[in-house]
Design a protein around this nucleic acid. Sequence first.
DNA 1: ACGGATTTTACG
DNA 2: TCGTAAAAT
Length: 718
Amino acid sequence: MPVARPEPSDARIIAHVDMDCFYAQVEQRKRPELRGLPTAVVQYNSWKGGGLIAVSYEARKYGVKRSMRGDEAKDVCPQINLVQVPVARGKADLNIYRNAGSEVVSILARRGRCERASIDEVYLDLTDAAETMLSENPPEILEAIDEEALKSHVLGLSEDGNDNQENVRKWLCRNDADHRDKLLACGAIIVAELRMQVFKETEFTCSAGIAHNKMLAKLASPMNKPAQQTVVPFAAVKGLLASLPVKKMKQLGGKLGSALQSDLGVNTVGDLLQFSEEKLQEHYGINTGTWLWNIARGISGDEVQGRLLPKSHGCGKNFTGPQALKTIASVERWLNDLCEELSERIQSDLDKNKRVAHTLTLHARAYKTNDSDSQKKFPSKSCPLRYGTAKIQEDALKLFESALREFLGSNRFETQGNQNNGWGITSLSISASKILATPSGTCSILRFFHGPEPSCSSPNHITSETTQGTASLSSSGRESFPALDRAELPKLTLEETTNKCQNSSSDRDEQITEKSNYKGTCSISRFFRSCEQACTGIIQDAVPSGLENSLGLNQADSKKKCSRTETGINCARSSIDREEHKREAWNEKGTSSILKFFHGRSPSCSSSQQLCNRMIDDTAPLSPSGSENCTGWDHVRTEGSLRIDCKIESARPSLDRDKQRRETWDNFKIEEIDPSVIDELPPEIQDEVRGWLRPLKHAKTAKKGSSIAHYFLPAKKT
DNA sequence: ACGGATTTTACG
DNA sequence: TCGTAAAAT
């Protein structure tokens, strides 16, 4: 990865929060009798007691280590409690840990931009919160500072005294401190509060590093575990890195770190200082070279991405030694189980977060006996992802068969036979990626036209992308927006929404036909109506009440285009005022040609039902002719939790039904849209529209696909 | 430039 | 180890 990013000129306050032996804590919370006792989490108990994946601090005292087998742990600590990872469908099931991780994220995201770095780690950008505290409530005027903050470790501050907390208090409250150090002090106080809140609400302890960038925060977080935090003042950076083994740095734990040692004799990060940027670039390329030069100096501009949800979901299983799978039938059985789990997880992501995965990928490992190139790797394969367990299973099996054919090469395999030509599968995994906040993203478009939609809310989850950004980001860096309670906003009924939608477009009907780019105009216009209606349809099915969902741009996207302060503006989109102000501002532009796109409306265009049919689950495979009938909204679906019934459509009066039925996504020519028109859209919806278009784009390259529909079709054998 | 496939890195 | 993930190549 190593790519150097310019460091922002103003000091940032970044925290890295890492849960202490997370899986062990989850199990101890579940079984409180294990609290305080040596405990470890193991998976697969059968062989030598299973492998340890998390070890409580009580157990570590006895020398129990991660990556020991359960039996070894018993040897060094006979009283240890070994808890098994839950098993479902014959494999480890990590869902309880994922869910516990989400609990934590939802708390840690409250004070600033938050990035979920792994199941149990987050990065926080607390710059704004720290600036605010410094200007309004600086530590020096606080009569009482939380004990938790006083227990901070401050690198460079001696800890040999009897009263370390008093030293820390003095450091936190120093009046003569560098501005950067004062901000760090505020950051430390905020992080201490957050960690206490995590403990209060989840019973989990965590540790944290507070520094001026992600790299340093990540280095610091494990320095004082468990349940403590470490601050890295600017002045301590040089000393910290000077003697730090390169292998300790993120990204240098593997081959690159080894290469530094063998190529240049670099053992510590400090050793890197001797080499010029050019020298490092000669050895490791331009990007990595610059990156190395920077990290040697503690410089890293890498930003905290506003992302609370994983970018992909996957599951897999190894089949070691004699367990290797040797028949298609056994592969199919396991694949079905894996697909079932994956399907549940992406469906849950859709339900909770309104996100849709677009790509299904299969990976496997295999061996081949008596073959010239028995080394050959089993290829990975991917295809568009269709929702519904059966479809995922079907597609995954096709991917597997296709990959196996390639793997075996000239050796043909017997498709149905129980024999094989000496192959064995030692691991199988499938994953869902290219996850876009699509239906919910559409809501931002809806909202752009209609104002905030209370019905856009998602049932429970805080873990959606944009929600948290609204809490503390601000345009000036001073003010902060309290989370907006969407539930208090007037709620539009479905009919109102639909009518509003129609009115807003029909009011402008007359103007549509002018201009040479009529095609594009019509196309994008229909497209947006589809988005709106799809959104409405999905919303309709949304679970009642609940917290507001995140809609709109995710922070990462908006960040790309905005400076830090600007980001505050663009992310503070739960403010109605701002939303409306911007909508007006954009409309006032008037001259924008794209405006015209929205002024016209062809009544027969678009169907949310079809959109949803395509996107969500029951898409029928494309017949070879590519002209299979599209079922339309009268198609009744029986599976999938996201049902869209006919209410929307029946709420649209007076449309000729046959006309409607003919309108399908096959009629929607995505390629008619001139991509440049996106630039004319209001900035807050541009990325979402691109998100819609981008993955669809590749449908163009598909064999005969001139239609969006192709994108949602099953893998076609090559 | 881009997307699919592969590799590298990290962590409970 | 195994099962996940992210990101670089």
